[in-house]
Amino acid sequence: MGTVQAVQAQGSLVHLVTAGTTLGVRALMKNKQPVPVKPIDQATANKNAAANTAAIIAAQPKELVLHRTPTDQLPKKAAEQITALEAQLEQCHAAMLANPSGIICTPEQRAAIQRAAVGVARAQSSWNLQPYQQEMAYYQAEDARRQQAVAPVAPAK
């Protein structure tokens, strides 16, 4: 349930930001003359992309905390779904440890984790999904960091 609420909240936030941006742009357009847009060179674009990636990484958890539920503490109603979610996350953890520079979670794995989290939320709406979300955020941040480290940097002209 937490995932569904988070997705709904995220959607609402995006809608509010979009609406606010639109209103702000309209207000600026009424009061000011258009400013010519300066073209951005490739070095600046690369620098901006690196800064955005760094900001995403900085916003993510610094420490990986694994949340695994002992079998005897699993609720009967959602035991299968929780075990499946934890198994998906464990695959990402194993991939992270196996290769210090490779991809941790593929898009397919991320989708499978999302489906598993939704399955848990449906089966046991009171189950706290936040530890799993934090673990996934860590893997996503680590994937972004690894991709940034591997990405070739174009020389400044």
Results as ranks from 00 to 15, higher is better:
G102W: 05
T69C: 08
Q133S: 12
P36L: 14
A43H: 14
S126C: 02
K76L: 13
R68F: 08
V118W: 03
K76A: 15
A78L: 03
P36G: 08
G24Q: 06
E108K: 11
A98M: 05
E86F: 10
I104A: 03
T53C: 06
V37Q: 11
G24C: 05
L97T: 10
G119S: 06
Y139F: 15
L74Q: 01
P131G: 06
N99M: 07
Y138R: 03
W127M: 05
A45T: 10
L85V: 04
L66M: 11
H67K: 15
G20I: 03
A95W: 05
I103T: 15
A59Q: 09
T21C: 14
P39Q: 12
K30I: 14
L85P: 01
S101C: 00
A116W: 06
A43V: 12
A121N: 09
T53Q: 07
A94Y: 10
T71P: 02
Q33H: 04
K47Y: 11
N128M: 07
L28H: 02
D41L: 07
K62S: 11
A54G: 07
H93W: 08
P107L: 04
Y132G: 00
T71Q: 14
G119R: 00
Q134Y: 12
A137L: 12
P107F: 05
N31S: 13
H67D: 12
Q109R: 10
L97F: 03
V118N: 01
I57F: 03
A95E: 07
I40C: 08
Q134R: 14
Q73E: 12
H67E: 09
L74E: 01
Q134T: 09
P61Y: 13
Q134E: 13
Q133W: 08
D41E: 11
R68P: 00
A55S: 14
N128V: 12
P39K: 15
L64H: 01
K38E: 15
S101M: 06
